[in-house]
Design a protein around this nucleic acid. Structure first.
Lengths: 214, 214
DNA sequence: GCGAAAACGAGAGCACTGCTCTCTTATGAA
DNA sequence: TTCATAAGAGAGCAGTGCTCTCGTTTTCGC
């Protein structure tokens, strides 16, 4: 194996090990544990990721990609915007329940002192894009304030036929989905809407109606 | 000072120190740093809180209380349910922006291996209560599925005249608020709806309409 | 093909962490 | 006054992120 090849495979091995680590022990990822799992001495890891934060950033980008791919696949073949939106919402929840730590990595508490590096921005946009495409084509009453419309400029390129007020509404509905999933994952719904299937289904119906996807 | 008094004041001092610690360095709270701040040796802290997790739990309960008090005060004197709901939503966001780390402590990523101890449940209910009282008196179409209504039993005692489907809707709207604030705090809205004042105002208008508070 | 340069792995070490244990002193009830 | 208990201090253990140094290996310019 050439130098570049071994490097690439080592990077992949480290990321894979970090993934299984985080799946077991949550976001308290230990560089030394990762090193042990790939059979390296701890200092060797730093040849590939200069800092723990760099490793986490790489994982964040990877997770955004996984989620975006899952969403895109879920939306395929749905004819109406309503069914597409519903499929996207269900896929988001299913992915989060299947990969809770990755979801938390993306949408959970930012690590102390962590500021999202630029490379995560397009990855995050890829997640938002299918929702915007499915839900932001209609104007949504109440979201048409000029100052708000103006802020939606960046989102207009994410899909065709994006209506600014619709984009703003989609943003809040995306927040609603992420909020609902976060509450469920954190156990805040235990004692009430747990399991949250019915609640989530009702939420999606409400969103379809709010966004005018009927 | 009697023994019990010094103990109480020490507990308070530790909690206060932990608060300023968390406000500066985020949720990566260090027991030793807290000890330094209160002028104790690190091992002495463990006379008051047997574990880091116990300290964090106490802070969670305290933060729930602070938030609940803020919300209750914000709702006072609002005549209509619509203005009360709006005031509650704005107060929630304002509190979160003013105390981001405390908000994350409550609604952010659960710490690895952390399971919410029973004493946090009533504290969490105190936060939900004013929202339920303001928003869950009307039936909300789409949230009336029998299985969902049945899950809302516990919420019926939080206020008078609670309609189960309304309670379910309030739960999702509370999730929407928390989701929106979380996105804002985590910087996910940078580049689009940042600052999020307009988006949040539109969200609250939509919620008032969805919940039938007009 | 050879020598310099870069990349790499290993190990020791630093300052920090949560937590435990032991020792000494202060307190309050009997 | 006696004596169990609570409290504080300090040392210590195993773990952490990260740095530095030291050989070894691979790559690249000449």
């Amino acid at each position: 194996m050439s130098r570049a090849e071994t490097r690439a495979s080592n990077v992949a091995a480290i990321l894979a090990a970090a993934r299984t680590e985080i799946a077991e022990h949550g976001s308290g990822l230990s560089m030394r544990a990762v090193a042990r799992e790939v059979g390296m001495v701890s200092s060797a890891i730093y040849r590939y990721f200069p800092t723990r934060e760099a490793l986490l950033t790489a994982m964040v980008v990877e997770s955004y990609g996984n989620l975006a791919a899952t969403l895109t696949k879920a939306a395929e073949g749905r004819r109406t915007r309503a069914t597409r939106w519903t499929a996207l919402g269900e896929a988001l929840r299913a992915w989060a329940l299947a990969n809770p730590h990755e979801f938390q990595l993306i949408y959970g508490t930012p690590l102390p002192g962590y500021v999202a590096p630029p490379e995560t921005v397009p990855a995050a946009a890829a997640v938002a894009a299918p929702f915007v495409a499915a839900g932001a084509t209609q104007a949504v009453p109440g979201f048409g304030a000029p100052a708000l419309r103006a802020q939606m400029d960046v989102l207009l390129d994410l899909a065709d036929d994006v209506e600014p007020s619709g984009a703003a509404a989609v943003l809040t509905e995306l927040g609603a989905l992420i909020g609902a999933v976060s509450l469920e994952l954190a156990g805040h719904l235990v004692g009430t809407a747990d399991p949250a299937d019915h609640l989530f289904a009702a939420l999606l119906r409400r969103q379809v109606s709010t966004l005018g996807l009927r």
